[in-house]
Amino acid sequence: MRFTLPAASLIALVAEVVANTEKVIFTAPSAITIPNIRPGLDDLSLDVLSPAGLRTLETNLAVQFPSDTAPRGVQSWYLLKGLEAGRRYEVRACWPATQPTEFWLDVHNLTHVFETPLLISSLADYSEQRQHPGLQAPRHAEPEATSQSVLLLQVHSAADYFTSNRTLMEHPPAVDVDIILDPFLLNILPQSLGPTALYITVLTAGSFFLSGAIYNWLYRIAEIPKPHTD
């Protein structure tokens, strides 16, 4: 089936409307040397986002309603690695509007997490939940120490609705989420917006020259003397 341009544009707008987005913008820190000792970052069993690797993670996150002990619901952690020091990035969480949820995104450097008891405890609990009991990870030759820009992403997710259905209130279903790592172009705008910015620039320039040509054409018509009738 072929769509005309207006129809395709309308579909894109509808797709945008039915999705919610929460984001955090940050500048990648200086590279640090990650030693080859165990346990290491890989042993945390975190999903990894990287500009040169996986940049969009399609997942579903458990949620719960805010409480005194968990005012922001459920926590999950992700590793951002292979970043370019000094470059701006954006991490977005996108989820369907049909699944009302509140998200909070925070990025932390490793030192801050390891020196903050509340954060390191949360990270350890999440890492333990992701371990598979009874399964031993294959042992490979220890990699050499590497130097790279690394951050930890902390995501809070809380259900944000009310229903008379007691089951849904006591056990809210997991939410489908896309977590996206988006580098900035020249530290000005996200890379994913590059084609849109180029389109708007070309459209603006074309409109400027076209409007000038139409103006000159109308001006010449207005200057043509009309024949006099006696």
Rank of each mutant, 00 (worst) to 15 (best):
L13E: 12
P183G: 06
T167P: 00
L189F: 15
P6W: 05
D176C: 08
A213Y: 13
H108S: 06
A52Q: 12
L105P: 02
P96C: 04
A213R: 13
S67V: 04
L152K: 01
A158W: 00
D43V: 04
S122T: 01
W104D: 01
K226D: 02
L181E: 00
L153A: 05
A15R: 15
E102W: 05
L218R: 15
H156K: 00
T116S: 15
R2C: 11
N109R: 11
Q131F: 09
S50L: 08
L193I: 04
G212N: 14
G40Y: 01
G53D: 08
L135I: 12
T33Q: 12
V74R: 00
R166Q: 13
H156Y: 09
G194C: 06
T229M: 08
H132G: 00
S50N: 14
F26S: 02
S149V: 03
A7K: 10
L153R: 02
G40F: 01
T56R: 15
F65W: 05
A97D: 09
V17D: 09
I188R: 10
G134F: 04
V91L: 09
L153V: 03
L61Y: 00
S122G: 14
I34C: 01
I179A: 01
A159N: 01
A158D: 00
D43H: 13
W77Y: 06
K226Y: 06
A197L: 15
L168F: 12
G206S: 13
V107E: 14
D230F: 13
Y78L: 12
Y199M: 12
L110Q: 07
F208M: 11
E223W: 03
A145W: 07
S9F: 13
C94F: 03
P190F: 09
I224M: 11
V18R: 10
T59Y: 05
T204P: 01
A205R: 11
S30C: 01
A52N: 14
L110E: 07
H132A: 11
P227G: 06
A19I: 11
H140Q: 13
P133V: 06
I34Y: 01
G134R: 05
V74T: 02
E115G: 03
F162M: 07
A159S: 15
P195V: 07
S67D: 07
G73L: 01
S147K: 13
R166S: 14
V113K: 04
